[in-house]
Computed example of a mutant assay.
Amino acid sequence: MQKRITSKHVAILFCLVICFVSCAHKSGHRRDRERPGTTMADCSNGKSSRSTARKSKIVNKRSSDKLEGSQIFDRYGSAVFMVFTTDGSNAYQGSGFFIGNGGLAVSNYHVFKGTGIGLEQIKLVGSDVAYKVTEIITRSEDEDFILFRVDCDNNNYIPIATEKPKIGEKVYAIGSPRGLENTFSSGEVSQWRADNLMQISALIDHGSSGGALINEYGEVVGITSGSFADGSQANLNYAWSIDIVKPYLR
């Protein structure tokens, strides 16, 4: 007897499918021959990192005016960074971004999964220094996010949106697909596939995992995570809502 398929089952099946077609394990982009030659560094001049996300001020003052894409990139491009990880044999590259001062940052869990703790390197835009992750605040494999702190003060960061974007609203993605640092793309929210999982038309690729998805008001609304790898030209991509990290910021 065939089992009846309900809308709940469809949502569950969708989540299972994207686990197999996401931007690949860890970051989606191997860097075996492109590993940067920089060493781990500390930009805080000996200052100790803060112990919890609660000590960072997450302030969102929404402007009444929408921003052009060029304005968003000029304002927040430097808040997005490249992530390099290794499992001891291979090197991988992903993306991440700051959501608060004192180095408070977020990325995808799969960018770090299975890699050596303490071997991660964070490369900021315009810098040849690789910063280090000093604290992992929380992480979730199910919702594919990791909240952590980078040993870097006075960083630029993207304010967090108070509301989820609606279907059809404009969004902008900043990440480093294929190692192309801080690539900017635009699109719309195509559909919500689960409470915190949105389908988007903004272009992303391997290495974009963990990048920022920003609305027209210059607020981060999501973490870019993957695309369907079936050879389709339909530009089917997805991102996790930034709402998944909000409970850990209060």
Results as ranks from 00 to 15, higher is better:
F73V: 07
P159C: 08
I160Q: 01
K246R: 15
I204T: 14
T39Y: 07
V125L: 08
E216S: 15
Y157L: 01
E68Y: 04
S56P: 05
V21Y: 14
F98M: 14
S22H: 15
D87T: 07
K3H: 13
E216C: 11
C43E: 10
L104C: 06
R33V: 06
S241L: 04
S232Q: 03
K123W: 04
N60C: 13
R31F: 11
E120G: 04
I5N: 06
E68M: 08
N90L: 09
Y157Q: 05
R178D: 10
V150Y: 12
T138V: 14
D230A: 03
I117Y: 07
A234N: 14
T115A: 05
E169S: 13
A53W: 06
P247T: 07
G102Q: 10
G96W: 09
S140F: 07
C152R: 14
I12W: 06
G28E: 09
G96P: 06
G96M: 11
L236N: 09
G226N: 06
L249E: 11
I158A: 10
G103M: 09
A105P: 07
V129H: 13
K47G: 02
E68T: 10
K57F: 05
G69N: 10
H206L: 04
K66R: 13
I72V: 13
G102A: 03
T38P: 00
V10P: 00
E135I: 00
Y217E: 03
I137R: 03
S227K: 09
G102Y: 04
G46S: 07
T38G: 12
N182S: 15
K66G: 01
I223A: 05
N155M: 08
V133K: 01
I223D: 07
S27Y: 12
M1G: 14
I223E: 04
Y131N: 03
R4L: 12
S201N: 08
G77E: 13
N108G: 05
I58W: 03
F145K: 11
H9M: 12
L249P: 11
D243N: 15
V59Q: 10
I12S: 13
Q121Y: 04
D195R: 14
T183Q: 11
Y217N: 11
S176E: 02
S185T: 15
Y172T: 10
G116S: 09
Y172I: 04
R33P: 00
L236W: 04
K246F: 00
N90C: 03
Q2R: 13
M40N: 05
N237K: 04
Y157V: 01
P177H: 12
P36T: 01
G168M: 06
G37Y: 02
R193L: 13
C43R: 09
S232A: 11
L104M: 06
N235T: 04
G94H: 10
T39I: 07
S209L: 04
C152T: 12
V59G: 00
S140V: 03
V59T: 15
G37E: 10
I117K: 15
V189F: 09
D142A: 13
I117T: 15
Q199V: 02
G102W: 07
R35M: 13
F73E: 09
A41R: 06
T162E: 14
I244D: 01
G102L: 03
K170D: 12
A173I: 02
A41L: 01
I174Y: 01
V171M: 03
